[in-house]
Design a protein around this nucleic acid. Structure first.
Length: 300
DNA sequence: GGAAGTCAAGTCTCG
DNA sequence: CGAGACTTGACTTCC
């Protein structure tokens, strides 16, 4: 099991997700921002490798407005050497990479302009992973999107949109259960129609599940991953101690996480910790997963 | 320098 | 019918 956290490292002074408004889009601005974002991404990769955190979600903001029609700057060409350097570092570290486009990337929409924008955005995400020289185990994870009052029709549109993707993009795509519309069972249905591997989000499953136990879900999930896809991906977030359900917790609840680990055996997977305090919790989770209480105390 | 308002984009639920 | 929620707040304006 590799463990990681999403996008930004709070202890570092830099951010890989600097952006700007569409009104501020110029070649110079884009170039300068991407340059800084890549510099920061490299810092994060080095930090994570040094601390044993070998699973990283790269922010979708790495290239601001990457798939916006008004952005015609050939950022891929311009930064290919930098991507290659960082990619070599990632591969040398044995690090796994994922990306997670935002809520606007919807393949099931009845509106063609929406699915076209989604296609362009997924192509951007795949291009980043391609430029890093990563194999098929580097994944782009999305949700099912909307239901629009007719689930069967929405699922059919989703499958058709997946079929229409370029193979290089489709091979990186994986689909994840959400906390409202697409349960784990629903996402297994999407897998059946598309062949896409399934990301299991344990937190969403707890909020909006399908009755499967953790062990049952992980067993079913594993069936959806092919040999070239790598280990299954799992998202975990501690429940909020008091506040409304649904939000990601500030920090790791060690008791809940220990129960999660115990309940997940003997399945193996790579784990993304979605908690607000990022690398702090990831280090504690790593220590817990390694079964070293002294390390847990140090990391805390 | 800090607070407030806005940001490319979708969809659903709640109040 | 508008605000808030989501994988992630950051930018920009105004005072």
């Amino acid at each position: 099991m590799r463990i990681g956290y999403p996008c930004i490292n709070l202890g570092l002074a830099c951010r890989p997700s600097r952006t700007f408004r569409l009104a501020s889009l110029t070649v110079d601005r884009l170039h300068a921002t991407v340059d800084g974002n890549l510099r920061c991404l490299e810092e994060i990769v080095r930090w994570n490798a040094a601390h044993g955190l070998l699973f990283l979600r790269i922010t979708s903001d790495l290239i601001p407005l990457a798939s916006h029609p008004e952005n015609r700057f050939p950022w891929g060409e311009a930064f290919a050497p930098r991507f290659a350097e960082i990619g070599a570092l990632i591969r040398r570290s044995g690090m796994r990479i994922s990306m997670h486009p935002g809520q606007y990337t919807v393949l099931s929409s009845p509106r063609p302009e929406v699915t076209e924008a989604a296609r362009a955005d997924l192509a951007y995400h795949a291009q980043v992973l391609d430029l890093l020289g990563l194999d098929r185990t580097a994944k782009v994870q999305i949700h099912g999107g909307g239901v629009y009052g007719d689930r069967r029709a929405a699922v059919k549109r989703f499958a058709a949109a997946v079929d229409a993707l370029e193979p290089g993009v489709r091979e990186r795509l994986v689909v994840e259960n959400d906390e409202r519309l697409y349960t784990f069972s629903d996402v297994l249905g999407l897998h059946a129609m598309t062949g896409l591997p399934v990301v299991f989000d344990a937190f969403h499953h707890a909020l909006h599940g399908d009755g499967r136990s953790l062990g049952e879900a992980l067993a079913a999930q594993a069936e959806t991953w092919g040999r070239e896809d790598g280990l299954p991906l799992v998202d975990y977030s501690s429940p909020l101690p008091s506040g409304r359900p649904g939000r990601h917790a500030q920090t790791l609840d060690e008791g809940d996480f220990a129960r999660f680990l115990a309940g997940s055996r003997p399945h193996d997977f790579d784990l993304m910790l979605e908690v607000k305090d990022k690398e702090r919790s990831a280090l504690r989770a790593l220590a817990l997963a390694r079964g070293d209480p002294r390390l847990v105390a140090e990391a805390g």
